[in-house]
Nucleic acid binder design. Structure first.
Length: 818
DNA sequence: GGGAAATGCGCC
DNA sequence: AAAGGGCGCATTTCCC
């Protein structure tokens, strides 16, 4: 068997490509990763250009510099805060509380000072950051800083260091922590509340969350200052060597001093919100209740907690039968698909039998032979250089389980193909099928994602089958068909693997003793949406793709029911409202299928067909069978395009992107965009105005007037600028939708009906909420949920030009309720 | 061994 | 210059 040398990696070696029977050798094509161009991430590398002047107005950084204003960036503040903290660490002394008697004395003094706002923090040990703090972690200490007016006997303005590892200390502080009138400000409240709850302390008296406040004055990323980052640092240090007491004290009081809530409040107070009011008013009225409990100045007290209560409640999953069954089915399907692919691939290159099918690099090598970005001269040059240095084969690591399965095969393999290196790794040589690739990754390598595999495979299992580009590459006929089927199997295997490792397995692992999953809900996005992590419950498979019925494993507790409610076309309604687009507002007023109406507006022949009765816009099937065909059936492709545009326009999609998605020319894509905008000129105008204003001010605003700074929108980097311009028109919509959901959730939380009926909010997925409560009251609860969501605005806020439509169902599983 | 980058993919 | 906004996360590979 002849083999030819080929360059791979500068540090290690050279890949021998094998001549394989039945496949034409097309020469050298594999290039090492060292040749990859470096790319940087757009958002992360963008530099901030905005600042707040002393009077609280947004100004450009140039103006800010001229006027000596502070950099508004979090990192900027963080540095200032750290500097001032470091500078004042000698000035602000620490009062240590290390025994029960002293704890009782100090806690009593605190209870007498409800007029103060107390900045609090905890330090925690024995914590796995990959899961919710509910049910794990041990509080080591609490730190409290109450400002210069508190004196517990050792002088005014001391930070308290409360050592809760000493017996009786936490118990002594419990009454104060559970005291509703003692306002406590935290940095990422949910974390501390949950960890203290593990010790039987149910913290209330929420004064605010400095993390949320920071988000409000600058929605940009807060890299490096997350609680997780701080905790990881601490855990890392504790691991390296036991922390000494002074370490602990300094570390623990750092946050309270470094991010004083009053400074946050002052910053927010300087920023305009609705003409005469400030962002601090916004925080107090909306985000503080959203973050937790209505404190003194909220318009109405909230009867409990919101985000932290949702986290605490968790959602029940069926770990006894449904998820294990899903796992069994998924693993069987995956193994079958994997075998199909392996058998096929190994016929061309034996090493494929041993490869890691989950490795993009190996699939890349197998199918395409690597990148095509280097010309042959460069390849030869590299090859010579590496040959001269004597570098040899590439070692490809195999998964442990695969390794075990293959250990026998390795020892009996044909000469030359598999080399057991004697280390933990098995080295092998993978020759390439040298297929043409239609798509590359952003760094220029052939993509091996689902779309790329689909391009090769086509839809060979459909009737009639549609074969992809691999069919011809393998000479058509049965051989071509088999190739397509094998590549489809590879694609399916990847999809099933995703279901297993992202959903089916972690859900079982993360469920607590009562089969409930507790995610962490964070108010930490650029647009004001929530995010969910450990696990992310906001990306569970949607109904159409939920082959293993994962959503069916999300269940109501025995005797209870779920109420699942979602807004219909929330973002499109926001777009209609914010642009005051007559056509869209009218379409929503008329009701019926919105995308079909869009198709009518875009295509004359569709409009005529509806007008002369050839087809119906929409039909209510409770009236029996429709007397004429429906638009969506007669003009399916027109409606699909209209729908795609409806969703894409708000994201700023370009003709270039549309033409690629649809496989049409740029001109055709442009024509589609023109047709969409022709019916909605206000949208185009609004987008232009919004971008212009964003460029002038460096920020864009949501429906409720929250800001998002857009670093780089005035800069010279075209890619960053274009990205920020799209964000400028999307954030008002996406953030506006988030505003509406925030209002709705506050209203839901304040609903006495729901509280009396025993319904509690478990989840929010951007335009959807899930409640759980007694099954016999589910219908009544459903009606109340709909009522709250349809009218989320309080009397201080203007209403929308369009109605909010809510679809809600009750069922015992998430799957059934959709 | 661990962190970071690259790739890919789930949701709205 | 890139070519759709916003997230979280698994896996592999690179790199120190």
């Amino acid at each position: 068997m002849a083999s030819r040398g080929l360059v791979l990696r500068a540090t290690s070696l050279l890949l021998c490509l094998l001549m394989t029977p039945g496949l034409a050798w097309r020469g050298l094509a594999l290039v090492g990763r060292a040749a990859r161009p470096r790319t940087s991430r757009l958002a992360a590398s963008a530099r901030r250009t905005w600042a707040i002047a002393e009077d609280g107005r947004w100004v450009s950084s140039a103006a800010a510099t001229a006027r000596g204003a502070n950099d508004v960036g979090w990192s900027g503040l963080s540095r200032e805060a750290r500097a001032s903290s470091d500078a004042s660490s000698e000035e602000v002394g620490v009062h240590e509380v290390s025994d029960a008697a002293e704890a009782r004395r100090v806690a009593a003094l605190l209870c007498a000072r409800d007029e103060l706002i107390h900045a609090c923090d905890t330090e925690v040990a024995d914590l796995d950051l990959g899961r919710s703090p509910l049910g794990q972690g041990r509080v080591l200490c609490i730190t409290v800083y109450s400002g210069p007016d508190l004196d517990v006997g050792s002088g005014p303005g001391k930070a308290l260091f409360v050592d809760t590892t000493e017996p009786g200390v936490l118990e002594a502080f419990k009454p104060w922590l559970e005291r509703e009138s003692a306002l406590k400000v935290w940095h990422n409240y949910g974390f501390d509340r949950h960890v203290l709850y593990n010790h039987g302390v149910d913290v209330v008296g929420f004064g605010g969350d400095t993390m949320h406040m920071a988000r409000l004055w600058d929605a940009s990323r807060l890299a490096g200052y997350s609680l997780a980052a701080l905790t990881e640092e601490l855990v890392g240090r504790a691991k390296a060597s036991p922390l000494t007491r002074p370490d602990w004290v300094q570390y623990a009081v750092y946050d309270a001093k470094g991010a004083p809530p009053l400074e946050r409040q002052a910053r927010l107070s300087r920023m305009e919100w609705l003409r005469t009011r400030s962002l601090f008013d916004f925080y107090t009225e909306y985000w503080r209740p959203f973050g937790e409990l209505g404190a003194v100045s909220a318009p109405l007290p909230l009867p409990g907690e919101l985000l932290t209560d949702m986290e605490r409640a968790g959602v029940m999953v069926d770990v006894r039968s449904k998820l294990p069954l899903a796992q069994t089915r998924a693993q069987a399907d995956r193994d079958a698909a994997e075998l199909t692919f392996r058998k096929w691939a190994a016929r061309y290159t034996e090493a494929a039998w041993y490869m890691n099918v989950g490795s993009g690099t190996q699939v890349q090598t197998l199918l395409f032979g690597g990148a095509t970005r280097r010309n042959s001269a460069e390849v030869s040059e590299l090859k010579e250089e590496l040959d001269a240095r004597g570098v040899s084969r590439k070692g490809l690591r195999l998964k442990a389980d695969l390794r075990q399965r293959l250990s026998e095969a390795v020892s009996t393999s044909e000469a030359g193909v598999i080399v057991d290196s004697g280390r933990k790794e098995v080295e092998f040589e993978l020759s390439s099928l040298q297929l043409e690739h239609a798509k590359t990754t952003k760094s220029g390598w052939p993509a091996t994602d689902a779309a790329a595999l689909r391009e090769l495979a086509g839809r060979p299992s459909e009737d009639p089958p549609v074969f992809g580009s691999a069919y011809g590459a393998f000479g058509g006929g049965e051989v071509g068909e088999e190739a397509c089927r094998a590549l489809e199997a590879l694609c399916q295997m990847g999809a099933i693997d995703t279901m297993l490792s992202n959903f089916i397995l972690p859900l079982q692992d993360l469920a607590d003793g009562t089969s409930r999953i507790h995610c962490s809900l964070n108010l930490n996005t650029e647009t004001g949406r929530l995010s969910s992590r450990t696990p992310n419950l906001q990306n569970q498979p949607a109904l159409e793709k939920d082959k293993y019925l994962i959503r069916d494993a999300f269940v109501a507790a025995p005797g209870k029911a779920l109420v699942v409610a979602d807004y219909g076309q929330l973002e499109l309604r926001l777009l209609a409202h914010m642009t005051a687009c007559t056509s869209m507002v009218e379409a929503f007023k008329l009701g019926g299928d919105f995308h079909s109406r869009t198709a009518m507006g875009m295509f004359d022949h569709v409009r005529r067909a509806v007008e002369d009765g050839t087809c119906l816009l929409d039909w209510d099937y409770s009236q029996g069978e429709p007397p004429a065909p429906l638009l969506k059936d007669l003009f399916g492709s027109e409606r699909r395009r209209a729908k795609t545009l409806n969703f894409s326009i708000a994201y700023g999609k370009t003709a270039h992107g549309l033409s690629k998605d649809w496989g049409v020319s740029i001109d055709e894509a442009k024509e589609m965009l023109r047709a969409w905008y022709a019916d909605r000129p206000e949208v185009l105008q609004w987008q232009k105005d919004t971008i212009a204003s964003a460029r002038a001010t460096g920020a864009t605003r949501t429906l409720l007037g929250r800001y998002r700074t857009l670093p780089g929108i005035q800069g010279r980097n075209g890619a960053v600028r274009a990205h920020m311009e799209r964000a400028a028109i999307n954030t008002p919509i996406q953030g506006g939708a988030a505003d509406i959901m925030t209002l709705a959730m506050i209203k839901l939380q304040r609903s006495e009906k729901l509280r009396e009926m025993g319904f509690r909010n478990l989840l929010q997925v951007h335009d959807e909420v899930m409640f759980e409560g007694p099954a016999e009251l589910a219908d009544e609860a459903r009606a109340e949920v709909v009522a709250c969501m349809e009218r989320p605005f309080d009397e201080n806020l203007p209403s929308l030009l369009v109605d909010l439509v809510v679809d809600a169902n009750t069922a015992s599983t998430w799957y059934e309720a959709k």
